[in-house]
Amino acid sequence: MLEVLLARLKQGRRTLAYPAGEPTLPDRFRGLPIVDAAKCPEGCRDCADACPTNAITIDGAAVKLDLGRCLFCTDCTQACPEGAIRHTTDYRLATRHRDDLLLEGRTLKLAEALEEKSRRLFGRSLKLRQVSAAGCNACEADLNVLGPSFSTWGDSASSSSPRRAMPTASSSPAR
């Protein structure tokens, strides 16, 4: 018992400022990519050719990015001769619809908070059922720790039974 208490003292209290404050991100973090099409040389397709998942399409002077396909690797940013495409540290990437992940320019139609009625219904509790449909295990691993000690919503956010789960999260490659 004494050992448990000593360990408790040693491990201390650990928490993050988020969501009240901004999260601390590593300097190499690759968030929302942005394209400054004005810098693009005439007829250049280097970024689109370098992309391993064909997430970039070039339509005349416009560069379109499909974030549903983007792996956030560094191939396009390294291939660009003008530095026109780069990753920002904007971590907000969630959208409500698949189509909203198609990015042209700088804006991304972010997912909105639940409307008042649903929020009242769910209260402060959210039970999530996760369906793993050939995900890469990253989403799975992070959803797995949304237990009581990692709660984001005030209550345990994972459920092993679909009966007790309200929303369902599916992790899979983009279609």
Partner: peptide
């Protein structure tokens, strides 16, 4: 997070 320090992704992406 140490992995993220090296490459920006917690799961070693990229």
């Amino acid at each position: 997070n140490l992995t993220a320090l090296l490459c920006g992704s917690r799961f070693g992406r990229g």
